[in-house]
Each structure stands twice: as structure tokens, then as C-alpha cells.
Write a protein that binds this DNA or RNA. Sequence first.
DNA 1: ATAATAAAAGATAAATTAGTCTTTTATTAT
DNA 2: ATAATAAAAGACTAATTTATCTTTTATTAT
Lengths: 143, 143
Amino acid sequence: MFSKTCEYALRATIFIAQKTKEGERIGIKEIAKGIDSPEHFIAKILQDLSRKGIVQSAKGPNGGFYLDKASMKQSIADIVKAVDGDKVFQGCGLGLKQCSETEPCPIHHEFKRIRKQLFVMLDKSKVGAFTEALENSLTFLKR
Amino acid sequence: MFSKTCEYALRATIFIAQKTKEGERIGIKEIAKGIDSPEHFIAKILQDLSRKGIVQSAKGPNGGFYLDKASMKQSIADIVKAVDGDKVFQGCGLGLKQCSETEPCPIHHEFKRIRKQLFVMLDKSKVGAFTEALENSLTFLKR
DNA sequence: ATAATAAAAGATAAATTAGTCTTTTATTAT
DNA sequence: ATAATAAAAGACTAATTTATCTTTTATTAT
Ligand code: FES
Ligand code: FES
């Protein structure tokens, strides 16, 4: 559904959200461990997320990644869009160059419905909202 | 959502279904034109679909691709599974190694619901069922 | 000022996916 | 039998995605 990069980005951002709520900044090594991702790869990804303002970072001692208030309110959909673009929310299921109402592919109407539901669902999911379940080990970011 | 290979496979199979209903076998060149795909690439893909029994083929003069009765009843979901595997129907949205009920990721329950709807929708869509709309130019396989 | 820390940046490398081109095999019509 | 047709097979190239490693820059505490 999403690229590896995007999957790591989502897990990392949720992980950072949790740590931020606990009041700490978190370093790349711990993030990599916390979400079970390759360390150097998630570093690259976070660099990019930081440039895009999706996560915040501070260099030097006591530095690390964290989320400001606005970032905390971001949705999963926002992050997917920033990383993978909106192909998954807008693109044609059969790969036509443009999903179009006037020249629809055979599955257009049904596919569009599902795509919409996917978007609504991911748009409602705010990164700051998963903390409690994670704390209580009701949900997981690795396994 | 799906790989390029899978998108081409779906369009090609639907295209072949249409031609079969019109009573003709169809060659690779015409398929490539009909669905706007690279000719050699769709050839490779069809080779594979043929080996898997998703489409039927005949060599030599008057040869080409067609669908038998069983293939006509196949669903889009069947083809997606055959080409891309069932990751899109079973895999975790955040990329955990295994989607799991007992150790779910933060979006598991919602994501699972959407994934299920996607499957049901694609499973209901049989390749033989699109012919009429295509004939009447209500739907399209290229643009 | 200096050393330590931690992210940013940059340069490669490996793996996967997408796409192309050539040769071989099977089938049919003459 | 032979030539023509059309898919099957195989070898290769290109592009993209995923991943690794090294160097630089910014920040902090001593
Ligand atoms: S045209 Fe294919 S999904 Fe809209
Ligand atoms: S565990 Fe992530 S979708 Fe089920």
C-alpha cells in the first residue's frame, strides 16, 4: 500500500509523538530500535521529514527529535502525502495516467469509494492520538 | 496500490476478456495498443499469466490470447493475488512484519476494515463483467 | 576555547522493479 | 516439406527504491 520509506516514516513519527508526550527528545539510534528499522535509513528519512516540518529536531547534546504542537495534530494521511504523494488517494486503480470521472476505468466508481474511505480513515488518525494505547501495550510499533 | 506489472496485467486481462466475448483471439501488439502499455513488457507479463492459467494462449497463425470460461469468471482480486501476492489484502499498513490481532499496530483495526472492503470489492469484480460498459465507451482501458 | 554529542549532508552500494531486444519453439496454411 | 505467424524463453539494460557508510555542521557542557 505504502512505500517502505513511508511505513518507516509513519512508525517513526508515531514513536516520536509518544516520546514527546513523555517529555523527552529521542535520538536516531533509539528510534531505529523502537520501530525496528535500519538506523541509517531512518536517519535519512527523518532528515527529510524534518526539512518538511513533519518532525522537529535539535542538534548537539540533549538534542534529538520531537514534535511541536502542530506536528502532534498531523494526520497519518498528511504524512503519507508528504512521503508518497497522493497517488494512493487520487490515482487510478488500474494505472491509467489520470483517474477521471469522464473517462473512468472499469473499476473507477467502486475503487473511488474505497480510496475515499481509506483517506477519511487516515485523515482522522492524528499522530498524537496513539500514545495511550502504546503506553499500555495495547498497540505496537515493532514485533 | 498495485505494482505497474499488476496494473498492466489487470488491464490486459480485461481487454482480452472483451475480445474473447467478441469471439476473437488477440495478439500482443494489439493488446499493447489497446491498453497503452510497452509491447515487450506486456508480452513478458502475459507469458507469466499464461503459465499461471490466468489467461489462455495459442501459438501460430490465428493464435493469440483469449480467456476460457473459468478465466472469464476470475475476479480482479484473483489476479492481484497472482501477480502482487496478498500483501495488499493481508499486510500491515505500517509495515510490521505480520499484521496481527494480538500485537496490532496503532491503526490495525481501522486499516483492517478498509483492507477488507477493498478485497470484497475486487473479489466481486469479475473480469468477464466489464465487457458491455467497454463496448459502449462508458469505461476505458487507456487514455 | 575545547571536547563531546547528535543531526545534516553527501556519496555510494545493493536490491528490486520496470522495460527492451533477440532467439527459439509451436502451430497453421500453402 | 516449407514459409509464415505468433507466443515462449532468455539475456540484457535502465530506473527506482532501499540501504549503508563517511564527513560536516550545529549545539551544549566543561
Ligand atoms: S479511472 Fe481508474 S480509478 Fe478512476
Ligand atoms: S498490525 Fe498493522 S494493520 Fe494489522
